[in-house]
Write a protein that binds this DNA or RNA. Structure first.
Lengths: 107, 107
DNA sequence: ACATCATATCGTAATATTGCAATCTGTAAA
DNA sequence: TTTACAGATTGCAATATTACGATATGATGT
C-alpha cells in the first residue's frame, strides 16, 4: 500500500492531477512567480531569491519541468527557464469547467 | 529535514499551493468530476463509483474539505457534498495571471 | 432497544516528498 | 591547463501521503 493507484484513473485525470501537484508547493509557486517577473527567460537568480539550498531548488525546477510547466534551454554557461503555457491552459480549462458546471447549491 | 518550509513563503503562495496540492491526485480529480455530474449535491455514491476503499475516499474527501474546495452538510442519514467555487476561483485567477504575464519566449 | 446503513477515525504498512551537504559535470575565463 | 562558476545528481534523514482493514459514531427504520 501507499502506492497511488494511477492506473485506475483516466489519462486526463492523471494529467490534471500531475500539473496541479507540481504547483502544489509554495516554493514552486514562488518559482513560477519569479519566472513571470523576468521579461521572458530567467538565468538562475532563483537560488539568491529563495531561502532554499541550491540542490533543493534544482529539484523543484526538475519537478516543474517533468510536469511540463516550465522549459529550460541551455544558453552558454547558464540555463534559461520559461513557462510552457500548454499545461497551464489545460489545468485552467479544467477549473473553468468546474466553475461552469456549478449549479446553485444549498450546502 | 523533510519538513516543507511553509513559513518561508507568503500566505498567498501557501494558499495557492494548498489548493493545487488538493487537486493533485487523480482520485480527487475524479471526485470533483463526479460532484459536477450530479445536479448540485451528491449523497455518497462515490464509494460505488471509484475503485478505492471507503476509508480511502473518506480521507480524500477530508483533504478536499480541508483545502476548502468542497463543503459538506449533513442531510439526515447521508452527507451532502458540493464544490466551493471560492478556492477554485483563486487558483483559476493565479493561472490566468500566469498566462497573461507570459511574453514571447525563445526557449 | 436493536439492527442497519453511511461515514469518520484509528492504526499501520508501503511509498513519496522535502531538504540539504557533498559531489559530479560541463562551460567559460584566465 | 587550471580555476571558477552554474547546475545536476547522489545519498540520506525527516516527514508526509496513500491505501486499507478494523472499528467507532451517529442517524433511521423495525
Amino acid at each position: 500500500m501507499g502506492l497511488t493507484k494511477s492506473h485506475q484513473f483516466s489519462l486526463y485525470q492523471n494529467d490534471i492531477a500531475s500539473i496541479a501537484k507540481a504547483i502544489g508547493h509554495p516554493a514552486r509557486v514562488a518559482i513560477i512567480e519569479i519566472l513571470l517577473t523576468k521579461k521572458n527567460c530567467i538565468c538562475n537568480d532563483i537560488v539568491d531569491i529563495l531561502p532554499l539550498a541550491q540542490a533543493t531548488i534544482s529539484q523543484h525546477l526538475k519537478e516543474l519541468k517533468t510536469a511540463g510547466i516550465i522549459q529550460g534551454t541551455i544558453e552558454g554557461k547558464t540555463l534559461c527557464y520559461c513557462i510552457n503555457n500548454e499545461k497551464i491552459k489545460l489545468l485552467s480549462e479544467f477549473l473553468q469547467s468546474v466553475k461552469n458546471h456549478q449549479i446553485s447549491c444549498d450546502c
